[in-house]
Structure formats: structure tokens, C-alpha cells
């Protein structure tokens, strides 16, 4: 069989090889152009010394990593709460029972208000405002209330993503579920939500990556996480390299995060779908 390739298979193989050659060549060309062009810039030397200083990077990197643990922590405890609140809000907004009307209104107001103000402002308002009420330790920590601000704002973004997903599930799916005797809640739980969530995983990931970055904003009200640590080191070493180090650390988390989701989605797609249109 390997000897006797069909006309089509031969054509496909030749085409694949050609595409590969073109892609490699163009990538190399761009890379070489950049490597040659950038160092020719008039101030490259200074930028290199300030932003890409190996010594400073070596010195500050471990501390940055330590500080990044706090970012991860805030992220990790925020995500489940965000998803929970967002789902609750989305389902409430989608409910049809008249008894839930006040809740629907509340959900709409909540989303409109939280989403309409910059995250940073909420972090200031809630992070300084609530502890200012004179709460006892540990309830007066800006770290806690900064995270709460983050959770409350992100929950509104994510709830809109969920809502779009719920509305994208065709009415005929509900009809089929109801015709089998499933209740409204069961239809939601077993038929609508599983499909809705799968569909919105890419935009959901988008929000999660944003959140991972916006966690750094909490630093502005006190906690020493990576961005603040980088700022401290910047002053100490009079170098911007710590910021580059911080950027590398962020990328080391966010890129695998997106790649993994893409891979999971692709696997799921392959498992459940028929033939793909080429």
C-alpha cells in the first residue's frame, strides 16, 4: 500500500511538503530580519542594559517567583467563586418563573453596575472602603477585599459569557427534553448547561487569562505580589529587567493555560463529531 499511493494521496503529500517549506522559509526570514534590525536601532545598547540585564534578572527572578505565588493564590481562590456566582446570575437571568422576577432585576442591576466601572476603581472602592468600616482582623485585610472586588467584577463578565452560551442552545433542545418529562431545572442541568458551557469555553478562557493578569491590580492597595515586587526591584537595581522577568512569568502560566484548553476542546470535538469539512 505504501508504494501504491493514489493520485490524490500523492498530490496531498506534495502539497503538504510545499506548505511546510514555505512556512519555514517565511518564518526564518522574519526572524532573521528582526535579529538584524533591532540591534541596529540607535539606543539598543541602553535598552538592552536596562530591560534585558542578565545579572539583574538572575538576582531578582527568585523573589519575583516567590511573589507570584500570591498571584496564583488569589487567582485560584477567585476562579471557583467567580464561576459559581456567574453561573447563578446567568441562570437567574435566563429563568422564566415570575416568582424570580425580583431576582432577575437584581441580577441585571448587579451586572450593569459592576461591569460598567473599571476593575481598578472597584479594587480601590471595595479594597479601601470596606476595611475602612472598622472591621476586626482578619476581616480588614485589603488583600481580602481586593480579591472580593476582583471576584465581583469578573463574575459579571463571566455571567454574560454563560448567558450567551445558554441562549445559543436551540429551543428545540429544550422541547425535546421537556417532551421526555424533564422538569425545567433538569432540562437546564442536563441538556442546556452542558452544551452552553462547552460552547463558551474559548471566551471563558479569555476571561480567565485576563483575570490572571488583573490579579496584579490588587497590588495597588497593598499586597506584595509580583508586579509590586518587580516595582520594588526596579527601584533597587535602577533597571526595568524585573518587569521583563515578571512578564516572562505571566506568560509561563497563561500560554500553557490557553494551549491546554485548545487541546481539550479539540479532543472533545473529535470524540463527539462526525467528519470535518476541509
Amino acid at each position: 500500500m505504501t508504494e501504491q499511493l493514489s493520485k490524490r494521496a500523492r498530490y496531498e503529500r506534495a502539497r503538504k511538503r510545499k506548505s511546510l517549506v514555505i512556512a519555514t522559509a517565511s518564518t526564518l526570514a522574519v526572524a532573521i530580519a528582526l535579529i538584524i534590525a533591532i540591534p541596529k536601532m540607535p539606543r539598543w545598547d541602553r535598552v538592552k542594559k536596562s530591560f534585558f540585564n542578565g545579572e539583574v534578572l538572575g538576582e531578582t527572578f527568585p523573589k519575583l517567583l516567590d511573589a507570584f505565588v500570591l498571584d496564583i493564590k488569589i487567582f485560584l481562590w477567585s476562579v471557583p467563586i467567580i464561576l459559581f456566582i456567574a453561573m447563578l446570575v446567568a441562570v437567574t437571568r435566563n429563568s422564566r418563573s415570575p416568582a424570580l422576577f425580583p431576582l432577575r432585576i437584581l441580577a441585571v442591576v448587579y451586572v450593569d453596575v459592576m461591569r460598567g466601572v473599571p476593575v481598578l476603581l472597584w479594587i480601590y472602592l471595595i479594597g479601601f472602603g470596606v476595611p475602612g468600616l472598622g472591621l476586626e482582623r482578619p476581616w480588614n485585610s485589603p488583600l481580602l477585599w481586593g480579591s472580593v472586588a476582583l471576584v465581583l467584577t469578573y463574575a459579571t463578565y463571566v455571567s454574560e459569557v454563560f448567558r450567551a452560551g445558554i441562549e445559543s442552545v436551540h429551543e428545540s433542545q429544550r422541547a425535546a427534553a421537556r417532551s421526555l418529562g424533564l422538569s425545567n431545572a433538569q432540562t437546564m442541568r442536563h441538556v442546556v448547561l452542558p452544551q452552553a458551557v462547552r460552547r463558551v469555553i474559548p471566551p471563558l478562557m479569555n476571561d480567565m487569562v485576563s483575570l490572571q493578569k488583573d490579579v496584579a491590580l490588587v497590588s495597588l492597595i497593598g499586597p506584595i505580589e509580583i508586579l509590586r515586587q518587580a516595582g520594588i526591584d526596579k527601584s533597587k537595581f535602577a533597571s526595568f529587567t524585573p518587569y521583563v522577568g515578571a512578564a516572562i512569568i505571566f506568560l509561563a502560566i497563561t500560554i500553557p493555560m490557553t494551549r491546554t484548553t485548545d487541546w481539550l476542546l479539540e479532543r472533545e470535538r473529535r470524540r463527539t463529531s462526525g467528519t470535518r469539512v476541509s
Binding site: 428545540s172 417532551s179 421526555l180 442536563h190 452544551q195 463527539t272
Partner: peptide, 25 residues
């Protein structure tokens, strides 16, 4: 009820589609 456009649940296997209502309802 059986519909013109089948309305099977695409995220469930054939077996899960069939067993959903007997088990849940």
C-alpha cells in the same frame, strides 16, 4: 414525542440520550 429534526442531545452518546429520562424522570 419524536421531532422532525431529531433533536438528540449532541453532547451525549446514544446510550446517554436514551437513558437520561428513564433515570432522571
Amino acid at each position: 414525542m419524536v421531532f422532525q429534526s431529531y433533536n438528540l442531545f449532541p453532547h451525549m452518546s446514544v446510550m446517554e440520550n436514551i437513558c437520561l429520562a428513564p433515570v432522571r424522570v
